[in-house]
């Protein structure tokens, strides 16, 4: 069989096992895996920006927060159904990402890093701003209701949320995969590899970079909206600088410019703190820091690159063996 057939088969198996997962594990684990899917969307969005377009954002937590607050405010004050808040969060984040990116993008990586770093630090303060407390609940945040499974399905609320998030994740990744292998994605990669040559080929670099920033913010914002729905709570202090950095850790661990890497990164940022918490409150972050630096030195393609290397090696060995038999 050809490699692509194997890959498709593997993907189908993976999706099938993802569907069966909540039936096999306990309730809290289901919740954790829901979070993994949500962070995977956010990390994928950030990876479009960092891995595929060669820009950087240290403040994507802000867009996650905007998505989360958009969903929460629409549900709390507008009585919108939870699923309808996702497109709204997407549009709001696309626009805000595009507008934020516009001025900073004409400049280099460092200026963008500085501007987004400041954004990440200012986010909790902005969310606490008293002028908007009627809508945002200031530092108390907003508490939401848990959506129940519709159509009388025989599953509990956590399982339903898992399936809902899984469906959204599949759609988002399918769209993203198509975007990245199409004209837009090729232009993104061209800008990363050689901005001048890309411009000479007729790519409008300023527009494309801001648009990438916007789309990346859109993905992170949709993840934020899902996060608000699943956790049923938004509060300013959860969207601090370290939240933004954990998304960056997800990208670095998963692997720059890989789609599957988003899942590895998301698994890492959901489960490692859980395990490391037992050592000390500070231990997860020490581990994050070490992994961040370690992956940058040794394995910029992250876990995804490692798995690809291992796969290729296995493939070659198997190929050699079957060739020998013949």
């Amino acid at each position: 069989m050809k490699t692509t057939t194997w890959k498709r088969l593997g993907l189908v198996l993976l999706i099938a096992s993802a569907c069966l997962l909540p039936l096999a594990v306990e309730q809290y684990r289901t919740f954790q895996f829901t979070l993994v899917l949500i962070y995977a969307i956010a990390v994928f969005g950030l990876n479009m920006l960092i891995g595929y377009n060669g820009q950087i954002s240290l403040g994507h937590g802000a867009f996650y927060a905007i998505g989360a607050y958009t969903a929460a405010i629409l549900m709390e004050h507008g009585a919108w159904p939870y699923w309808a808040t996702l497109p709204a969060a997407a549009v709001v984040c696309l626009i805000s990402g595009f507008l934020f990116g516009r001025p900073a993008l004409r400049l280099g990586t460092i200026h963008l890093a500085l501007a987004t770093f400041a954004l990440a630090l200012a986010t909790p303060q902005l969310l606490k701003y008293r002028g908007m407390s009627r809508w945002t609940g200031s530092s108390q945040g907003i508490v939401l209701d848990k959506p129940e499974a519709p159509f009388g399905l025989p599953i509990d609320a956590d399982q339903w949320l898992y399936y809902f998030v899984l469906a959204v994740t599949l759609v988002m990744f399918l769209l993203g995969w198509n975007l990245l292998r199409g004209r837009f994605g090729r232009a993104m990669i061209a800008i990363r590899d050689h901005p001048t040559a890309a411009a000479a080929m007729g790519i409008n670099t300023a527009y494309l970079k801001s648009m990438t920033f916007g789309i990346s913010a859109l993905y992170t914002g949709v993840a934020g909206a899902l996060g608000a729905i699943v956790v049923q709570f938004v509060a300013p202090d959860s969207f601090n600088l370290f939240f933004s950095i954990s998304l960056l850790v997800g990208v670095a661990v998963g692997g720059l410019a890989t789609i599957a890497g988003a899942f590895y990164g998301a698994v890492f940022i959901v489960f490692v703190p859980n395990m490391a918490d037992q050592i000390s409150k500070a231990a997860p972050w020490a581990i994050y820091g070490v992994f961040l630096i370690g992956f940058m030195y040794a394995m910029p393609t992250g876990v995804a690159g490692l798995i690809r290397l291992a796969g290729n090696w296995l493939w070659r060995r198997m190929g050699r063996k079957s060739a020998g038999e013949r």
Partner: peptide, 12 residues
């Protein structure tokens, strides 16, 4: 990479 490494130092 330099930005990410210095963020790593910050976190540590």
């Amino acid at each position: 990479s330099a930005v990410i490494v210095s963020i790593g130092i910050l976190v540590i």
